[in-house]
Design a protein around this nucleic acid. Structure first.
Lengths: 207, 207
DNA sequence: GTAGTCAGTGAACAACTGTTACCTGAAGGC
DNA sequence: GCCTTCAGGTAACAGTTGTTCACTGACTAC
């Protein structure tokens, strides 16, 4: 029998989840660096020593959260990139994707936005690495597009970095809107407009 | 005699500076939320109680840092906006402005980038308020531009928010480059390209 | 010159932190 | 059935935290 189905392993995973969830919920209004190991353990209903069985550091827990938050995103982004049709449709799909991600896992997204430039080096680097991967992926797709004929490699990365950052600012705007109690129609309209603007610039590059 | 020139007031201001500087230097690699009052006081060579004479909270100190970091920026931005000539030149000027700001006050800028989405609500709101003001200012200038004939008000704010966020990502990229030991030529080239792209989109709006 | 103001000190407080060494008891392999 | 493994618990450690109190003593206003 696989060791992943044992009663013991199941319990272990439950505790790990409890720790991650406890941290995640504290992180809604705090930063990872200000979060104590004991605090998280207490919120998870577990003793501080149990924490060490899973992470030997809060930074390590943070890295686990990064992976968790971005793991599912890779394939979804791939889907959007594979989307056929004109760029406007693809831009709308990207905005919809971001909005959906924020709606389904707000705490994870808030965590990413907050810790991207946050105070814990290990987490910053984990996020940066993932974003580089995203940018490369987007860049590869863009480069394959006939619109990009005559574009240099650094022109492409320039654009894909801009798009990745735009994803982040859109996500952040969604979070801000929802804790102001507004719906996201204004936010998504703005984001779509910005993508359209960028696309127009792309089409007419280099002027 | 003005109370601002008294020996007492001078000493008071020196201590305040020491506290702000101490905090600022700790914040190079930590976040505000994880910074203790005692820690800051110790680094400033002052007792914890003295801290209370100036700020009754770390959040209040953070707000002071925000004001300090962005106060000088307002007029500089105004200068760039007033810059005559074509948009390419103005874009270059904007990038140069950001680079210069990061070079002259790296700690302040890092603080802004980190705490913009950081864990201390008071500071987040202070930064957001200032950025809204910037966006409005930029928006007003853009709207006056003949290129913007036929633009709706929300189209303008869409663009100016994009530009403000772009300033932030450029600043962040400069900081990242300098702690990797690189110079900023690649970063500023990318940033100029992005602004040029955005400008092209603007000129051809709405396509 | 004197009385008052007030920036900074010193000591104490209860509460909390990360980390350790050791113990417990249920699950797993044979 | 027994022995091992190991997730989690208990208890204690030295340090640190924010906050309070009464205090000193150089400056200032009159």
């Amino acid at each position: 029998m696989s060791p992943n189905t044992g009663v013991r392993e199941a319990q272990r995973r439950r505790t790990r989840r409890a720790l991650l969830d406890a941290a995640l919920s504290q992180l809604e209004e705090r930063s990872l660096g200000s979060l104590g190991l004991r605090e998280v353990a207490r919120a998870a209903g577990v003793t501080p020593t149990a924490f060490y069985r899973h992470f030997h550091d809060m930074g390590e827990l943070g890295a686990a959260l990064v992976e968790e938050a971005l793991a599912s995103l890779h394939e979804t982004v791939r889907d959007v990139l594979a989307e056929t049709g004109d760029a406007a449709r693809r831009g709308d799909a990207a905005v919809r994707l971001v909005a959906e991600l924020v709606r389904s896992r707000p705490a994870h997204v808030r965590f990413l936005v907050r810790e991207r430039h946050g105070g814990v080096a290990a987490v910053r680097e984990a996020i940066d690495g993932q974003l580089d991967a995203f940018a490369d992926e987007i860049g590869a797709t863009l480069a394959a597009d006939p619109v990009s004929a005559g574009w240099g490699a650094d022109d492409v990365t320039m654009l894909s970095r801009l798009l990745v950052d735009h994803m982040f600012m859109t996500a952040s705007a969604c979070l801000a809107a929802s804790l102001r109690g507004e719906d996201w129609s204004a936010v998504t309209r703005t984001a779509r407009g910005q993508l359209r603007l960028i696309h127009l610039g792309r089409v007419h590059w280099p002027g």
